[in-house]
């Protein structure tokens, strides 16, 4: 008993120093003005037209990226989960490998690839094909998000899929279900927890990122993450930056709650 308490000490310290205190500070800055007086005006800054636009764009791009990730990841996770371990190892490695490289570096690499006079366009020129002009557009940002966050969608889905008992699938087939019915009525519902954590792990970082939009969107694509970054760094206005962060946090919590609720409702009527 005493030992256990002792063991949890470092975690407690960690939680207080790096989770609780920063959160308290964000809430403090977010809910006060320069004079230290309580105010909601920092939160209300979200409603300015520019900020709303940035939030809307961020929501749209991260939603699209999340959907694309899901569509790409699910079939791949299924293929991986059906193979035996030795084959999976290699396949998984190919998709996980990029994760071992620096995030910034990977995104910079895409910048070089996509640039007006970048690698891809040089190649296209060589082949006398029309140029690709997606750098500094929302498409490039979405591409960056999908590329960077895809593994976070694959892993949780692969995890739940590989844990489904093969005989449960056999039982569905045995009871007359064809492949499609088995997928829709058994495999998909059973993999919902993996889908949800995959969505969370892709949607949240996409919604808050400013690096990807900075590097692949140029100065043209302003997401809510960029706005907050600018408030903190260029504006040095911690109050507004924190206020916007709080609103964004509430947004994320609300959307997660929505997904969780939908999942609960879904369970009963899935069939």
């Amino acid at each position: 008993m005493k030992n256990k308490r002792l063991l949890s000490g470092p975690y407690l310290f960690w939680a207080i120093a790096f989770i609780i205190i920063p959160l308290v500070m964000i809430f403090y800055y977010g809910l006060t003005n320069n004079n230290g007086q309580f105010t909601f005006s920092n939160l209300a800054r979200m409603t300015t037209p520019e900020n709303l636009k940035a939030l809307g764009l961020a929501l749209l791009i991260s939603l699209i990226s999340t959907v694309i990730c899901l569509l790409l990841a699910y079939p791949l996770a299924m293929i991986l989960s059906e193979k035996n371990v030795s084959q999976t190892g290699f396949m998984a490695l190919i998709f996980i490998l990029p994760m071992w490289m620096n995030f910034l570096l990977r995104t910079l690499a895409w910048q070089t690839l996509l640039e007006k006079n970048g690698v891809i366009n040089s190649l296209l020129n060589l082949l006398h094909l029309p140029e690709l002009a997606i750098i500094n557009t929302p498409y490039a940002v979405a591409l960056g998000m999908v590329y960077n966050f895809l593994p976070f969608m694959i892993l949780p889905i692969y995890n739940v899929l590989s844990r489904i008992d093969k005989d449960v699938i056999n039982a569905a087939r045995d009871l007359g279900a064809n492949n499609l019915q088995t997928f829709l009525k058994i495999i998909l519902p059973l993999s919902v927890p993996g889908i949800i954590s995959g969505i969370t792990m892709v949607f949240v970082p996409s919604l808050t990122t400013f690096v990807i939009s900075d590097l692949l969107g140029g100065s043209k694509i302003l997401l809510i993450g960029n706005v907050i970054e600018q408030e903190f760094k260029q504006g040095s206005n911690w109050h507004v930056g924190s206020g916007l962060s709080i609103v964004l946090m509430l947004f994320i919590i609300a959307s997660m709650a929505l997904i969780a609720k939908y999942d609960k409702d879904g369970e009963g009527s899935m069939f």
């Binding site: 008992d165 005989d167 449960v168 056999n170 039982a171 569905a172 058994i186 519902p189 059973l190 369970e267 899935m270």
Partner: peptide
């Protein structure tokens, strides 16, 4: 099935 294989959901 030997291990029942019921649909848990």
């Amino acid at each position: 099935f030997q291990k029942y294989a019921l649909f848990s959901h």
